Simulated assay, not measured.
Amino acid sequence: MKLTVLIRPKTGILDPQGEAVQGSLATLGFAVTSARVGRLVDLEVEAADLDAARTEVERMCAELLANPLIESFEIVEGNA
């Protein structure tokens, strides 16, 4: 199963990279009032079905991929 994990800073958490992107875009004349920078992780998981794959990826996120204190994650079906 191919799944993608979208990892983002939680609302209210300082995001220096997002602030840099927003500032740079504004300098170039783009009307961007906010930007958040996160990560995208594509995974290929050996699992019997989609539910089992999602459960395994949730464990991966909780144990390694995302910091639950400052980040949220969303699991979507992979495109790769």
Rank of each mutant, 00 (worst) to 15 (best):
R8L: 11
L25F: 10
A80P: 12
L65M: 14
Q17M: 05
P68T: 05
V41D: 05
L64S: 13
A62C: 03
A66M: 11
R59F: 05
R8A: 08
D49Y: 10
M1Y: 11
G12R: 01
S24R: 12
F30N: 13
T4E: 15
D42A: 13
L40T: 10
V57W: 02
E77S: 10
T55R: 13
L65H: 08
N79W: 08
A66Y: 09
A26E: 15
E44L: 04
L43N: 09
Q17C: 04
R8D: 06
D49N: 15
P68W: 12
L25P: 07
T33N: 15
K2A: 02
L69Q: 09
I13M: 00
L40P: 02
T55Y: 04
L40G: 03
N67L: 07
E19M: 10
S34D: 15
I70Y: 03
S72I: 04
E71Y: 00
E46Q: 05
L50G: 02
R59W: 13
L14W: 01
L28D: 08
D49I: 12
V32D: 07
V45R: 02
G18N: 06
I7P: 06
G23S: 15
G18C: 04
V57H: 04
M1T: 11
E19P: 01
L3N: 06
C61K: 06
R59E: 09
I7T: 09
A80T: 09
L64V: 11
L28C: 11
V57L: 05
P16V: 09
R59C: 01
T11C: 01
E56H: 13
M1Q: 12
T55I: 05
S24H: 11
T55D: 14
L40Y: 11
V76D: 05
L65E: 06
G12F: 00
L3T: 07
S34G: 08
E19D: 14
L25Y: 11
L6D: 05
G23P: 05
A20L: 15
C61T: 07
D15K: 01
A48I: 11
R36I: 03
L43P: 04
L69M: 15
E77Q: 14
A31P: 13
L64T: 10
A20E: 08
D51R: 07
I13S: 01
A53R: 02
E19Y: 03
A48L: 14
V37Q: 06
R54H: 08
S72L: 01
E71D: 09
S72R: 13
I75T: 03
A26N: 13
R59A: 12
A48Q: 15
D51E: 14
L40Q: 13
V5A: 08
A53P: 04
A80L: 12
